[in-house]
Design a protein around this nucleic acid. Sequence first.
DNA 1: ATAGGGTTAG
Length: 673
Amino acid sequence: MSTSTTTTTNLPHHIKPKEVSAESTASTSKLSQKTILHILNTKCTTSLQHLKQAHGVALRSGHFQDHYVAGAIVKCYASQHFSNFGFALKVFDSVWRPNVFVWNIVIKGCLENNEALSCISYYCKMVAMNARPNKFTYSILFKACTLVQAVEEALQIHAHVVKNQFGEDGHIRSAGIQMYASFGLVEEARRMLDEAAESNDVICLNAMIDGYMKCGDVEAAKELFEKHMPSKNVGSWNAMVSGLARCGMLKEARELFDGMSEKDEISWSAMVDGYIKGGCHKEALEIFNEMQKENLLCPGKFILSSVLAACANVGAVDQGKWVHAYIKRNTIQLDAVLGTALLDMYAKCGRLDMAWEVFENIKQKEISTWNAMIGGLAMHGRADDAIELFSKMQRSKLEPNGVTFLNVLNACAHSGFVDKGLNFFSSMKKFYGIEPEVEHYGCMVDMFGRAGQLEEAEQLINSMPIKPNAAVWGALLGACRIHGNVEMGERVGRILLELEPQNSGRYALLSNIYAKAGRWDDVEKVRMLMKERGVKTSPGISMVDIGGMVHEFKVGEGSHPQMKEVYLMLETIIEKLQMEGYSPNSSQVLFDIAEEEKETALQYHSEKLAIAFGVLNTKPGTTIRVTKNLRTCEDCHSAIKIFSKVYERDIIVRDRMRYHHFRNGRCSCKDFW
DNA sequence: ATAGGGTTAG
């Protein structure tokens, strides 16, 4: 029986191995098994054409029956490079009585192609066919169980490991420790580690440190690290540093980090990520700069994408650009993760043009890539473009997810597209089976609210199937402020102060509503309540990126070396603006919208300071980009509008909510913020 | 003759 013919008949027509021409058959069919293997391992890992050809040759020559050859072929097809794992499985099905090696290749293939559940089913088939699993099989399976959180299966598989006497294998053990820790079963993980107490395997110990950290048991991790690890390696320190940092213990993480005699890229990366997770973006950039100074390591894509996230957050567009240039210079592949981080950085730093260019250059776009671009457009008030890009994404047959809809709805909300928004909202469930989450409802409330349909907004809250959170009520309160609805504002404000008694922003918003209506007694009451409850306020901070350095400004703080000049400049500016019709809005000033920054004759909001600094340090006509941690207030907003006209400069302010492009006396948000 | 372990991600 010729097995090669039976094999090909199962294959769908369009993916059959390429027919080999008569002429070449004569020579290629004589290829030895060794040569075929060599071709498979060299040419066929990246070229589908070569692979199909080699596959054909193997089938014709009978070498496909050799497990070395069959295994190599399956492995090549399973490579993510071709993203056609289904075909690899078909080829595997045509292997006659696969041995362990071939089974392991297919099980590993499942893992690498995000089908971890199939790992388990192939393992079952393997056992059913009486093929004996080996130690390689089990470490793959433990990883698969980790990925899909298959606890029951894991326990059974673990029993098989013990029964087959692989319990002593270090690889299996470290995978097992990670697995149990990921299930939250720390004791189980610890038991695995202790079973091999005498082996003192550093990697298993490191995995245990990480496991403790992931389960939040910092003390246990520390004890293991300090008392029971006579020989540590970089990985041990890295596990500690990244664990501490992830648990928010940044100071301790930093101390340990500073004490490391040898740091690798992961050490730096862990520290950068820790700072970012803790909201310390400036520190993240500083530590990256330190890494550059040491000049020993070339930053790779992991740390670069973290750094880009930090740049995005503080608006450090110059440093972001530097990273971009670095990527180009070193021909680092712009994969979906790195590319999306870069795109996001440009969008958040107000450079939509660059964001778009990057977007188009990302070859393997993932859903998050599209989401970032759609979100970027939405943030800048380009609702039509955002919606258009959304349709384009659908045409490219990518399925939107919850985040996609969040961004699209956000775009609608900020441009007053109520009808369109409603359509999207209902289609997400109807056509895509995506259940709206509380954020989506928040967006809808915001949309109705901005458009002045306050009753509809309140109705939606009352009818939503999930419990509204503070953000949802906050959106409504914000709308009450825009439209000056004191009655509803009071009601909603009361709910919010109950729900989040420590959130200063809520008090500020309510007090603003009262101030706008001239109800000064109530303004005072809110202020007293805040004092009584000891609500901590967060200071407004504005950052401006000039010449690759991020400068920070806080209200009433004189730490910046140029502070004197900045205040002088600001006074000149204000005088000039007043001549052009600006009057400082003292009705709003007890708190500004963004809370808590008291305005007195000598205290200016941080964005004004940042702009004055920008004027001092850039040439006339240069665009000034400011990033603020809170929302910008009405007074600053109108001051900046006039400024943009008087000084003939574009100002781009990114506040907590969105972007404001000021030009020639107007703002892109159309005062709709 | 055929293969693996820990620390990083939008």
